[in-house]
Nucleic acid binder design. Structure first.
Length: 376
RNA sequence: GGGGAGAUACCAGAGCGGUCAAAUGGGGCAGACUGUAAAUCUGUUGGCUAAGCCUUCGGAGGUUCGAAUCCUCCUCUCCCCA
């Protein structure tokens, strides 16, 4: 994997760059649609690639390991071959499930024992087997096995958890460097900074992660319920420590304004379920603001979903029709909303990139931050 | 023509003397969602000068301290037999 910075914004830490992988290049800043179970829910790859313009998508180690299972993925020769997505894939390690499945797991120094949310069966994840599983899935970028701490989280626990995540990182690196890719292309490991909302822990973690000298670095444990200001504060501090010549990935973020703000702090990569999940639930993100398409006020609004939208659904369908689909429980509704939201998110990062290249990012960002947060 | 069942809030449908402004579904309205246990979840759904009051359970009367619940008549539905 290679990372080339093309331009830096003169008034912030924002940059435009290119990440090269064996499955093609990724222009940054980039938003990566989340495809947990090997599918970006409700969206065809044809739409993802052509209408939305996705450059890389996510998969999830925990979910793919449970279904379809590693044996199937290996027989398919990896997730790319299995689902047909030929562009880069990043897999999350299951660290988020350590957080979200708190009542179904038990943590030890060795790893985590999970109870499957599907059938209750018990499974063990360790830094080593999580690396092996991600080898089997065959993602281009693979994440270290970490613990995403909750919010709030007391200092003692945050510190203890962070240190364990660091020890696990050492084991991940050792495992990944002693094994080979299964399908003939490179896989790059990204370590993850933790430390909850504590500045000194974040600093310590960023320094530890930076010292690992990985080809890209991630920030985890944020956007779990803490105020946005704290998230920005932590992100800013960590970005100041992580190497500038490597991509920085802020995991699980976020709202349109979260993304713009984080780009200005030096983040290059984002992923979030928000455009897809909230889209399925009837919430649309637009340049003018957010709206709940189920609201009665759209009942007879026959104007396009988003006049300035970049996807065909934006001007092909009207708000009133999309509302009708949601109100009727028609599956096309969530499909259209997902395509729209993902297109909007892609437009947001594409336009950010364009503004960075032209040196106008900061002033543009101010306008957009206000607009996109408005409730319509 | 004979016999039977029933009319409850936007709809369906519980309730069968007080704890009922009335269960439960659906529908309506609104909210939440940030490395996806999510096509999910939550709130609300008679009115008001709102910890209280007023008007509601087909209509009109009655019994009772008290009625959606019991009685009488009326109106209307549905089912079975001719």
């Amino acid at each position: 994997m290679k990372f080339d910075i093309i331009a830096n914004d003169p008034q912030s830490f924002a940059r435009a760059a290119v990440i090269y992988t064996d499955h093609g290049l990724i222009e940054t800043p980039v938003f990566m649609p989340v495809g947990t179970a090997g599918t970006v829910k409700a969206v065809h790859f044809r739409e993802l690639e052509n209408d939305i313009g996705a450059r890389i998508i996510l998969g999830n180690t925990y979910h793919l390991y449970l279904r379809p299972g590693i044996d199937v993925l290996e027989k398919a020769k990896g997730l790319h071959k299995f689902n047909g997505w030929n562009k880069p894939i990043l897999t999350d390690s299951g660290g988020y499930q350590v957080y979200s499945l708190t009542d179904r797991r038990k943590m030890t120094e060795e790893g985590v024992v999970f109870q499957s949310h599907i059938d209750g069966s018990r499974h063990t994840f360790t830094p080593e087997n999580v690396m092996d599983i991600q080898r089997s899935i065959g993602a281009d970028i693979i994440m270290a096995f970490d613990e995403c701490t909750p919010y709030p989280c007391d200092y003692a626990y945050a510190s203890q958890s962070m240190n364990r995540t660091h020890r696990w990182l050492t084991r991940c690196i050792s495992r990944i460097s002693s094994t080979d890719s299964l399908y003939g292309y490179h896989q790059t490991l990204f370590p993850i900074v933790q430390g909850s909302v504590y500045g000194d822990l974040r600093k310590q973690s960023a320094e530890f992660v930076a010292s690992a000298n990985a080809k890209g670095n991630a920030i985890g444990g944020l956007s779990v319920g803490e105020p946005a200001e704290i998230m920005y504060e932590m992100t800013e501090m960590v970005c100041g420590i992580l190497p500038a010549d490597k991509p920085r990935y802020l995991m699980g973020v976020g709202t349109p304004s979260n993304i713009l703000e984080s780009i200005s702090l030096g983040i290059d990569m984002f992923d979030c379920v928000m455009p897809t999940r909230n889209g399925r639930n009837g919430m649309l993100f637009t340049r003018q603001g957010i709206l709940n398409i189920r609201n009665e006020k759209w009942k007879e609004d026959f104007s396009p979903i988003d006049q300035e939208g970049t996807s065909f659904v934006d001007t092909f369908y009207s708000k009133a029709y999309l509302r009708h689909l949601f109100v009727s429980g028609e599956m096309l509704g969530p499909m259209i909303a997902s395509v729209h939201n993902l297109s909007f998110y892609m437009w947001l990062v594409d336009e950010s990139r364009r503004q960075i290249l032209e040196g106008t990012f900061s002033s543009w960002k101010k306008r957009m931050t206000v607009q996109t947060a408005t409730r319509l």
